[in-house]
Design a protein around this nucleic acid. Structure first.
Lengths: 248, 248
DNA sequence: TAGTGGTCTAGACCACTCG
DNA sequence: GAGTGGTCTAGACCACTAG
């Protein structure tokens, strides 16, 4: 079987959107430059105005464009474009930033769900969870520690081999079960390193750490993963906060 | 002049959306319950299906609903609904979480832009910036320190009185100039408290702190504010990371 | 196969901005 | 007033899910 993907035909609005994105990335348009009007684009690309509007929405969501009633549609500043965040794992995120991601697996085991984990993942206390604890590296330097718990369907198991081979746990789980991360919530705060963390991360106890707790939901909005990510001060978390198009 | 606001008539899709949101918040629908189909809603509310779809998009952006092709539209889990983030100041954010926000102004002065600030705010080095340094409190306890720099039009000035009186600096600036925050980018990391910070925050030097740097853009996407927010470990930053409806 | 959301069209009118 | 984005309609067909 060849590696050719079927590559479903993309909807027109998405094709248009990527065309516009390419134009911008190639430097044909600079920050805050105006785009042609929706009616213009609609004629030029021979699609309905509504399809043009969908393409513009698509790029607005991603921090690439913004539009102002009565004025026009414009190219968002580079900094906004860059910091637009979407759900993705450490590997993907690091690559996007131009770094070389790596990992050291510390533990891969089945553990019974504690009361609090059971509550977060909507399972019974004692339900067997897959636990994966890893050191995370960027360009061969340790940047953090991930401690993740997955609620997997019965009979599904994962080996260290598979984790090492695959590019991301998300991808691995997408193949083995029907896990498809659709949404996540995160909670960030600062914390002093505890002795064990300090030793693993090669820092002094009490050193400042960035803690990011995450719960990931499947496309059916079942909580599937709970993960505590512990980062050194050198690690930076970027995000874009958009005002909603209208009220809260 | 009476305090009556004109209250512009809202578009139908927004009226519908708020109606649905109310239904959910009153507990008529629980997490992951299905909504009536778009065609149903379109008949029931006597609007076109497209208008229903706009209302659904509106609520999806806000983490209230999610829809699955071929299956239906459903109520998003409570945790997702709660952690949906939008641009707002400390005051508004704290109130949303049920806390009582407060502040102690440490400095309000005009300072010449440094090289780095000038670069971030797109002004000439030496350009006079308004600097506002404040302790931030929730329920009468210190939680952090805000150090903000604003690039204001010439001739606009702000007094401590005005800051104290107004509910938020954003609101104040909206009145005095045409500042309207539309988007922001944030960069978070951990840091050890320096002696001065430690003293102001009432902690030991070297204690862990959460640092959030923010650049705020106006509706014209001019960078208007640069702010460094320093938080104690007790402060928590919540966010929702949605996968985009389609590819990155 | 019936029902759902996803895409697309063509046209209309409104609300806003700016010269 | 001319031009822009914002809202709304009515209808068509496609793609997907589930019983």
């Amino acid at each position: 079987m060849p590696a050719e993907l079927p590559t479903k035909p993309q909807p027109r609005y998405k094709v248009l959107a990527e065309e516009v994105r390419r134009t911008i990335e190639q430097g044909m348009l600079r920050d805050n430059d105006p785009l042609p009007s929706e009616r213009d684009l609609s004629e030029r690309y021979e699609v309905s105005r509504d399809t043009v509007r969908k393409a513009v929405r698509y790029l607005e969501e991603r921090g690439v464009l913004y539009s102002d009633h009565g004025r026009g549609t414009f190219v968002a500043p580079t900094m906004v474009r860059v910091m637009s965040r979407y759900i993705g794992g450490f590997t993907e995120d690091t690559r996007r930033r131009g770094g070389k991601p790596d990992q050291r697996i510390l533990a891969l085991e089945s553990v019974p769900a504690s009361m609090s984990l059971a509550g977060l993942l909507h399972v019974e206390p004692g339900f067997p969870l897959l636990r994966l604890r890893r050191l995370r590296l960027v360009d061969d330097a340790i940047v953090g520690l991930h401690d993740a718990y997955y609620s997997l369907p019965k009979g599904i198991d994962v080996t260290a081999q598979e984790v090492l081979r695959s590019d991301s746990v998300y991808e691995l789980l997408r193949d083995k079960c029907d896990f498809e991360p659709a949404e996540a919530v995160e909670n960030l705060c600062a914390k002093a390193a505890e002795p064990e963390e300090a030793q693993l991360l090669g820092i002094g106890p009490g050193s400042p750490l960035l803690i990011c707790e995450r719960i990931t939901f499947s496309d059916r909005r079942e909580p599937i993963e709970y993960c505590v990510m512990t980062y050194l001060p050198s690690y930076r978390y970027n995000t874009r906060v958009a005002r909603h198009r209208d009220g809260p």
